[in-house]
Design a binder for these strands. Structure first.
Lengths: 261, 261
DNA sequence: TTTTGTGAACTAGTTCACAGCT
DNA sequence: AGCTGTGAACTAGTTCACAAAA
């Protein structure tokens, strides 16, 4: 059901930003519960727009954007419409303006400070990973329990601390987000430490179902599940070989409450 | 025209298709088009069952399984029912029997041989990652274009070859699956090489939309999108603080055809 | 014109609730 | 009795198609 937003009541004022949010909440939303799928697509749109911007494009229609990147134009419009009226009829969207809006919606206009818990292969790779936007995300520290690793730094110079100092450093370094890269059996305990330290957003790489308070956002990236679904696809030569079967993107996922394993 | 960009998985029911798997397809399926969501949950169920098996449990009902691991019992039954009748009324499911069935469905009863293309931080971490079941997945080789890395091996002893030898090694080593861990701008070219070498299943870590033939299964794990959705959650203190908001799982995702960026 | 924004229609996915088997 | 397997009901997400704006 289309919440309130749809019933035309939404004269919440387009474009004007009310500061309801205390912290950094620039854009006013028309609807409350926006799907994770929509949010993920926003990231995709942002990436596409950046490419177009680099090409020097000033404006783009949902139609063109969709054709260029194999998206659905109605979906683009609908996704954006949840957050405001960013387009101009007869023209399309102003590329740089829309990029700015999406960055704002996603909270990418403020910098997030990250730590990685678990200095194994994956944790070290994440800490040194240069794939995400450096101005929105800054890697600050790593934590591990292995005495040999403590006091050292990664190749990129990220220091490694004992987990016992997590709360202290989260506080002093204003850490926002933690990536959890410990073995499955240690994941719940590590998550508890992370939550106790005051972090409310966790990117979990442990193949485990974790439980945390409802206000902590846990996004799990499960490599085993991903690989196993490839295994399934191989076992089934079927697939959509019949038609143009396309499938855009999709995502990872998130969960909130209780959860285990 | 629906064509391109769709979601979930392939196009809606159009042509009927295939026959069941020829190769290693032991279980007979009742339905053709099974959702990616269902497949991902199968992996979760398998993990849960393994835990129960380790605890010595012989049988388990969907009810018990759901309570223990915060799943939905009707969904468990429905997911399993797509593939056969594995339960016994009045009893539940035989744990080890069901594990075997799920492994078979997911193709985990045959070993898959993997390569990683891109020997950067992430690629090396993947090659050495010990998180996935060693008997279903075997890491065989890595590929890179950086002359300095060639001829060396990873900590775990995986050799690194030039990308020019990809087709040769895929063939001689019977490689099944490739993980793609190169920078976004090089991803499409690397995918083309992988496809040309005969691989039909790719785990893509590049934050790029890739295009390949329809019969090649590409599963993208996009760390940037994951992080950005956490950023969104932080920007919006809201969340489901209102209710017991639960959100089961969800997944990564997959795509098939053309795709860019 | 062109292109947005959006109700309505449609499709996919989840949960309910119960007939029927053990 | 206990529990599966499954149609039916419901909820979520996507796509259509068009009125209204520029």
């Amino acid at each position: 059901m289309y919440t309130r937003a749809v019933t035309g009541e939404g004269c919440a004022g387009l474009g004007n930003h009310r500061f309801m949010g205390n912290r950094t909440t620039p854009v006013q939303f028309k609807s409350d519960k926006i799907s994770e799928l929509t949010i993920n697509r926003l990231s995709v749109y942002l990436r596409c727009l950046t490419l177009l911007s680099d090409e020097g494009l000033q404006t783009v229609s949902s139609q063109t954007l969709a054709e260029r990147f194999n998206l659905n134009s109605a979906q683009i419009r609908k996704d954006l419409a949840y957050f405001g009226e960013f387009g101009v009829r007869g023209v399309g969207y102003y590329v740089d303006e829309l990029r700015k809006q999406i960055r704002s919606i996603l909270g990418l206009d403020t910098q997030h400070r990250l730590v990685v818990v678990g200095a194994g292969n994956l944790g070290l790779a994440l800490a040194n990973y240069d794939g995400f936007s450096a101005d929105a995300f800054r890697m600050v520290a790593m934590f591990d329990t292995d005495a040999e690793k403590l006091g050292t730094t990664t190749k990129a110079g990220i220091p490694i601390f004992p987990v016992s100092r997590l709360a202290e450093i989260v506080d002093s370094e204003a850490i926002d987000i933690a990536a959890l890269a410990v073995p499955a059996h240690a994941a719940q305990a590590a998550l508890d430490d992370i939550v106790a330290a005051g972090i409310r957003a966790v990117l979990n790489f442990a193949p485990a179902r974790l439980s945390g308070p409802p206000d902590v956002k846990i996004k799990t990236v499960d490599l085993s599940i991903s690989l196993e679904s490839l295994s399934y696809a191989l076992a089934r030569p079927a697939a959509g070989s019949d038609s143009v079967g396309e499938t855009p993107d999709t995502i990872v996922d998130e969960l909130r409450e209780h959860e285990t394993v």
